[in-house]
């Protein structure tokens, strides 16, 4: 809630649970504040030394992350009010980067697989795996 970048926000920064606005603020502050960068380095050191927290476990084990089915139903508007509200909260207030990515993916899928997507997948396939798809035979 505070406008100040707290230690907890830096931990969330490392674990990808910041809203877009929070993320922008933290990155901006980190660029300008050597003290904050030192604080971030210290958190990383502590984590490497084995320090952890309930919050860190929650974030890293994705305890309240949303399933693809939940997100699909959210997009379709078929969740009950309580669950719908919670999904919106997890996405917008918590700012879970992983759930937001899944939501964006499902939204794109709703529009169907276009030629650009097919081309992109083909590029990934060729460049990542070395597998070149044979050209399809014309009927």
């Amino acid at each position: 809630m505070s406008k100040i970048v707290t230690t907890h926000m830096l931990e969330c920064y490392l674990d990808e649970t910041l809203t877009d606005a929070e993320l922008a603020r933290v990155e901006q502050e980190l660029r300008h504040s050597p003290t904050l960068r030192e604080q971030l380095r210290q958190i990383i050191k502590d984590q490497d030394r084995g320090e952890h927290s309930v919050g860190a476990v929650w974030r890293r084990q994705h305890l309240t992350c949303l399933s693809r089915d939940q997100l699909r139903n959210y997009l379709l508007g078929v969740l009950d009010a309580g669950e719908n509200d919670f999904v919106a909260f997890h996405l917008q207030t918590i700012g879970c980067a992983f759930c937001m990515a899944n939501l964006a993916d499902l939204q794109a899928q709703q529009k169907g697989t276009d030629a650009e997507t097919k081309q992109r997948r083909k590029r990934f396939l060729q460049s990542s795996t070395g597998i070149v798809q044979p050209p399809k035979k014309k009927k």
Binding site: M1, T6, T7, H8, M9, E11, C12, T17, S53, V54, G55, W58, R59, T64, G82, E83, D85, F86, F89, H90, T93, I94
Partner: peptide
Amino acid sequence: FVRVKILELLFVKGWA
């Protein structure tokens, strides 16, 4: 769900 939200804000976001 309100209790889930409370805990998530306390532990995940570190709010007071």
